[in-house]
Nucleic acid binder design. Structure first.
Lengths: 203, 203, 203, 203
DNA sequence: ACCTTCGGGACACCCCGTTTAT
DNA sequence: ATAAACGGGGTGTCCCGAAGGT
């Protein structure tokens, strides 16, 4: 944050966002630095001024773009719902069931990177693991709130539920991507709702 | 099938298996033809004698190695169990819960390729989709058998259940890969069993 | 020229010789692989088929081009002279004093590489050291012959003389290169002859 | 020398000295501007404020660091000796024979640059030539003094001797660098002394 | 004036998947 | 079935200029 400029570090930010979009679509190994800079108004010289290597760019994308996005999309909105189980189902229906078909074919950005880079590079592994844990922890907090508020079976293990909720998100993304048919969402979503009902507090 | 040789097409088979192993670990884009042939007793010339391009090799790996393997590991063993729900749980516990930790870090071969290649190449997409559908259909057959035999709620949608069962498999693989801790299997497995119980036939 | 040709591996040889010439003129660090291949009828792909890295090419140039050349130019011709001291002086006069001025400005190939690469890379250092030792040993053999034949003071240390003879060769090359005036050869050569006279056998 | 500042031109001086040291070890082409500035407390911007190009820096290193150093190390000390031949031998023994082994492996700064840059760039060539001539002239002055004082054969050509003395310095540096063994100094030094004796004034 | 951050392209070395000649 | 050759592209570095703060 330098001086009075309104766009303090726009170059870096622009590169990060473009890189995120390209990595999202072609994978980290499938994108070249040339392709990324070609989609920005800058050159490779500017790129390597901000990021020493492509790998470091990848790390920055995870930390500065992907992780905040996961929290913003999947955790924070839950605060708007009194019953977190309702929130989870509604958000899933909203962000996946009603998403553009093109997005569904590309899957979940976090899941994509986990599948591709976790076994290859430990730097990625650590950061992606951290993102996953953050996501799960965020869900867990809301599950506990739902237990306190009497919506969820208080004897259930909140952490275990949170893990499974995230698993179902990743699983849905993966299945839609693999099946290539957005229509597959409804049956899968039905099973999700059935699971969520099974952990409601007994009335 | 060349005549008197006891290993009719050993070259092609060896390449396929080596390629499968390398692709499994580094991804399709992360492996080079050189690396693959270096792990076989053959040369690059032999490689291009059997496969016109790297992409065609990838297709052959999916069709001739990966897809049979999925059926053999996840569908056929279910025939050994009277109750398919028990079979699903037992196989999952056996092949994932008791697998070597190194395998868990590399995930599910099918899921890996789906995540990496489905959005990039339509040839891969079709073949991987076909593999997924085959897997799901195989499960569905056993689910129907379980309904007929009175183990599973007969009013449930067998196809929907089969989809979710596969989703849970891929989800577990993905979560274990992302969390990097094989210990995460037990809590996830607990949720899987809870779901399976929820679709049992009412007694 | 391929097949039953008497030059079975011409590509590698051509690259080696072109590389030697370029390195001779611009130094190893001063030449790019692109420049080298541009001066051959081949492409970069062919280059990296024969040499895994630029460094390995450099090693091969030392071993396969430079070292044989030193022996051929500075050691073998001495066999033609009954008195090796005469041979040393005549060869020096012939190969340096009457060489094209352009050659003198570029110095001695061995000395050039020693100055540039010895302190930087141990692989170069070992090979260049070996070339120097070979040169010195060759000279020493002829010095001993001269002692047996009664031309050289038999009490002198043949190895020490050989070292100094090589030193004078490198020194002359270096001075001519540094002074940039081929005319400087005569006074330097006069001192060389004076030294050689000082080790003649006493009459 | 700028007036009231206590460090008149420290930035430029610091860069020059760091550059000299780096060029000494890796050669001019082997050092990058980045490496040089990284070893100073300044940035690349400061560098290019003082030196328009890397080449100009190289020229400045020759003129302002290397050349004064040569005079100071190899010419001025000779004034301390009544007999310049003794001075030459003693200084050589002192500055080479008793130098740290690490220095010997890096050779003579002047010689290094001559070998590397003289054939490549005329600006370097002129300046290095000038440095060499200065060195030789300095030696020649002392040789004449030695002739007047009766230590050196008065019929000898002082310029020729001076050239050969410098040749021997460069030759020794080159041989030690190439052979990689500081132990080689003694035999070489013995030959040097023998040459020096051969030009003594006849008694 | 001095120094810094930022950016620009050209080019470095090396590897890629592939074809051709043998 | 092979070794040799092919180019185009991979990441990263090079030297340097531009705009602006102190």
């Amino acid at each position: 944050v330098r001086g009075k400029s309104p766009h303090p570090d726009s170059t870096r930010t622009v590169i990060l966002e473009v890189a995120f979009a390209e990595i999202y679509r072609h994978g980290f190994q499938g994108v070249s630095v040339d392709e990324i800079v070609a989609k920005t108004p800058f050159t490779k010289g500017a790129f390597y001024h901000h990021f020493p290597t492509k790998l470091v760019l990848g790390y920055a994308v995870v930390e500065e773009v992907l992780m905040p996005m996961m929290v913003q999309r999947w955790v924070e909105p839950l605060a708007l719902y009194e019953n977190p189980l309702v929130g989870i189902a509604c958000q899933m229906d909203l962000l996946i069931g009603h998403a553009a078909p093109s997005v569904l074919g590309t899957g979940c950005p976090l899941n994509n990177l986990v599948q591709e880079m976790s076994p290859i590079d430990s730097g990625f592994r650590r950061r992606l693991q951290s993102a996953l844990v953050t996501w799960i922890s965020g869900i867990e907090t809301h599950i506990r709130r739902g237990q306190s508020a009497g919506f969820i079976d208080p004897t259930a293990d909140a952490g275990q539920i949170a893990h499974f909720v995230v698993l179902m998100h990743e699983g849905i993304f993966g299945m839609l991507k693999g099946l290539g048919k957005p229509l597959a969402f409804q049956p899968l979503f039905a099973s999700v709702k059935q699971y969520l009902r099974s952990i409601e507090a007994p009335t």
